[in-house]
Design a protein around this nucleic acid. Structure first.
Lengths: 369, 369
DNA sequence: ACGCATTAGTAACGCGCGTAACCTAACTCA
DNA sequence: TGAGTTAGGTTACGCGCGTTACTAATGCGT
């Protein structure tokens, strides 16, 4: 690469590295004037003619501002950092999309760093993957991001490294175990209620539930919502119809089999108060995938004999199952966007709506109910 | 926010914004010395004692280098830009992971920008999504990235915007329609061959093929590889066993149904030279998902009656189908890593291996063959 | 004719850092 | 003894830009 001679006055088109000075020379004004024009400064009196000359120079020379220099001089960066484990678990990747779009709209830029352990450098003291996370955040802070977004793949409590607290931070799809940082999470309860209401509206009164690990926030919330909806319809959750399983297709298959094979149910019984359930609420789509197999194997049809409703809207599954799965969507994109808005408020010193903001989970009607 | 008074000599711990100068003052040396020590400059003679004092100051004050200032002064940035549409299509997201890890190992940082159109700003002239892509690249160049990676969700030819050519650029999972830029793509042909060889090794000689849109590079390559493998076994591709379909589960279901219901095949016929195929090579996993349904509906078992092999290794599908799907994996992570290595060579002015580098697609044995 | 505002700019400084050039005291060695 | 070398630093400059002073020319009311 040719070494650039400093102090070169020739305003020639040095295709790489056109600076504001070059623009100023070309337009025959001072660099200050260029700066004023380009940053659209209202209080500076610059004639329209000069302004036009400058824009032309920018165009001709192909000037592109240097973001780093700008940040250095202005002490502001217009960048947010997004740190996440999502990259390995693509399923929540829409958080990134939502955040990017929202940031973009605000003329800001998102620096993304992933926290998972590759075979990367072990770091100065050979730390584990926790050290990797710290390192990622450190890198982001070195870029002088104005705030941090922390996104998780699944809704849970998180221990945020202390360095993240040096700068405004918002958690997305997770919450601070210490309860100090603002967070954005899905409204699991409302989602569970919505799914149940949908089944009730279709006339189902005996609803089997394929539950997740009962301890995680998603399970707690969704089940709670389900119970509420049933209660409003004057029904109660029959514990015999709730089966917990591994959060996989196999787990769903096993759980659905258990429910369907429960003794004492006639093959074609319609949901009386004691019959076989006529609908299955699977607390995630993967388990619904397994449940489909269990149902089909028994010669039953969906939704004719048994309606199925899922949760998560894992597109790759829900939209491709046959019949397509009706499910409640996790609002990843909205959470990402809200995260950015919240962060923007925070960095601007404005108050935020609440410490924990819930985002609605919409129902996606497809063909399984 | 309190305005920082300039020229403050007090080396007090201003928790935010500790500079190299503060470190120098605390350690009682000049800033230059600090710089030399921190950048590990070999030619500078600094005593171990001074060195230790400086490290201690760094520790105590919590100094964190300012990446922007560093880039400004050194005229190098250690950042690569990754522009991609992947964010909406999570399925290829491992490209990002592979690239991040590799960059990290090289002590470099990846700035990621997505090109897809959100409801974001329409831009100065209200362009479409092509303008959005340009804008993303522009943003990256403003950060003075040293090189650009361009990643696609599916293997195809791409028209790269001209601004991307201002800086070394490598394409991942796609190639330059104009044939000018280096690219990294999966070796579809070898993958197709490998899948076919696996089926042949299991004794299958009549193999049904569920094809993609026959024009895309993936279909062309995979089919070519299949043909090669058959030829080596002294077999020929029976055109009657190849059905193209929509690249969805429904498409796979329809195509598989067509093949299985072809007249003249006994229900249990084993693969003679004219019998029903005993194996199905689905050119992607989504179609395999549909094929499963078609097979099961006909009372046939997998892999007992019909073996199925897929392509893509779309985890969410392949690992959760029942039985789990044996498939050929697209080497996203490796492509990402190789992309970074190639870019590193390019920016260092070193020659690169080839204009188009093929990455092997490994076979993942699960339970469907 | 003079003071005063307004218009249209410019000079100069500093952001945090890398780096070439320079400096000084102590140590060698003929 | 004095010239050269080395160890251990420091001074000074500039990267590209935002921003605060300042200036110089013009218009305008009295």
């Amino acid at each position: 690469m040719a070494k650039r001679s400093p102090n070169t006055k020739s305003a020639a088109v040095r295709s790489r590295g056109v600076t504001m000075n070059d623009v100023a020379n070309y337009a025959g004004v001072s660099r200050t004037t260029v700066s004023f024009v380009l940053s659209n400064r209202a209080t500076a009196n610059i004639s329209d003619e000069t302004r036009a000359r400058i824009f032309e120079a920018v165009q001709v020379l192909g000037y592109r501002p240097n973001a780093g220099a700008r940040a250095l001089a202005s002490q502001r960066s217009d960048w947010y950092g997004l740190v996440t484990e999502i990259v390995t678990a693509p399923f929540a990747v829409n958080i990134i999309k939502g955040a990017q779009d929202e940031a973009w709209r605000d003329r800001r830029f998102l620096l993304i760093a992933s926290t998972e352990q590759g075979a990367g450098t072990p770091g100065p003291a050979g730390q584990g993957s926790k050290g990797m996370e710290d390192a990622a955040i450190e890198k982001l802070l070195e870029q002088r991001v104005e705030g941090l977004l922390y996104a998780a793949t699944w809704h849970r409590g998180i221990d945020i490294p202390d360095i993240a607290r040096e700068v405004p931070t918002v958690l997305i799809n997770c919450f601070d175990s210490k309860g100090e940082l603002p967070s954005i999470v899905p409204d699991e309860r409302a989602g569970g209620r919505r799914a149940t209401e949908r089944l009730l509206a279709a006339g189902h009164t005996r609803i089997g539930i394929i539950n997740l690990d009962p301890d995680i926030p998603a399970a707690v919330g969704r089940l709670e919502g389900c119970r509420e909806a049933l209660a409003e319809a004057g029904l109660e959750l029959d514990p015999g119809l709730v089966v917990s399983g591994h959060a996989t297709a196999d787990g769903g298959y096993a759980a659905a089999s258990t429910i369907l094979d429960r003794a004492g149910w006639g093959k074609r019984s319609v949901g009386g108060s004691k019959g076989r359930p006529t609908a299955l609420f699977c607390l995630n789509d993967r388990m619904a995938m397994g449940a489909y197999d269990a149902i089909k194997e028994r010669g039953l049809t969906i939704p004719g004999d048994i309606a199925v409703i899922g949760f998560d809207n894992q597109e790759l599954i829900a939209a491709y199952l046959r019949p397509k799965l009706t499910t409640v969507a996790l609002p990843f994109e909205q959470m990402g966007a809200l995260g950015v808005r919240t962060l923007a408020a925070l960095t601007a010193g404005q108050p935020i709506a609440a410490d924990q903001q819930l985002v609605d989970c919409p129902l996606l009607e497809r063909s399984s109910v």
